[in-house]
Amino acid sequence: MDWLQIFSNTASSILSPATIAYALAALGLAVHFGYAGLLNMGIAGFMALGAYGYAISILTFGFPWWGGVLVGIGAAALFAFVLGIPTLRLRGDYLAIVTIAAAEVVRLLFLTTTFDAVTGSADGLSGYHGSFRSSNPIPEGTYGFGPFTYSHVDWWVRILGLVALALAAVTVWRLMSSPWGRVLKGIREDEDAVRALGKNVFQYKMQALVLGGVIAAVGGIVYALPSAVSPGVYVTSLTFFVYTALLLGGAATVFGPLIGSLIFWVLQTFLSNVLPAMVAAGILPFMSQIQAATLRFILVGIGLMLLVIFRPQGILGNKKELTFVR
């Protein structure tokens, strides 16, 4: 087994766009689920809107890349708003079912052959990189050291992703320690008590839903920046994986989603490298390489169950500020 290659790939995943995208999506979900107590099961739909909004506005309408980013964000904000009107008055499990259904509707709309000319249906979209890559100030070449050696294009994606992540994290951190954030946490703990204090609970929830949705959409854009948009990515499992990353780090924390996504992807990359290698080396003789690749998803499921049962507050969370109210 080539341990050097395995560890190099694993280390490289620390800075991968997928890790940054998951961190952003998990941060958005932290605003929804961790701070506001909204059981949003449709985070994949927000990410899809970000990614498709970005790609479609560039490919179909000829926007510059930053215009595409704005469209992606706008689409997600609008989606959050429309989704919030009927659902925010409902109980938690209704909200979960409606958001998961809405995200699936979004995915099916992007997948259908009816809008093939715009969405690319099952093939997805690609080839929208011109404007983004020409705005790259880094001179052509390869930079970095060891496992973190990337081309100028790859660095540009990662730098912008990290900047977006830092901005989002600071925004969430400042907001959550402001009076607005305290009201939000109050709503999570006891909605009626906050309402009795004269606060408009519905508006606070709506603002949280839009804010978290926008952050998740930025995650979707970062996911789409390096290569292509594929409808197969934005399935319900993506929502579950983002939940796993969030709960791993700690739902009601700012750094929890970041740490959680990092650990999630480092482990995923490590397992996806090491398990097939172990099969090839004859250490796991009773399975094929494809089965070894499936094994890591089984481990994700088991990990999620154990996490929720035994450490629901996550790695960084505070047991007193448990997020599973009601």
């Binding site: 938690g92 979960a96 579950f240 939940y243 499921g301 999620l304 169950m305 599973f324």
Partner: peptide
């Protein structure tokens, strides 16, 4: 709590689904 149970069932769902694929 019921929300925790729901997320446990999601974990179980992923586990069983990929065991089937396995």
């Amino acid at each position: 709590g019921v929300v925790q149970l729901m997320i446990v069932s999601i974990g179980l769902s992923l586990t069983l689904r990929y065991i089937f694929q396995f």
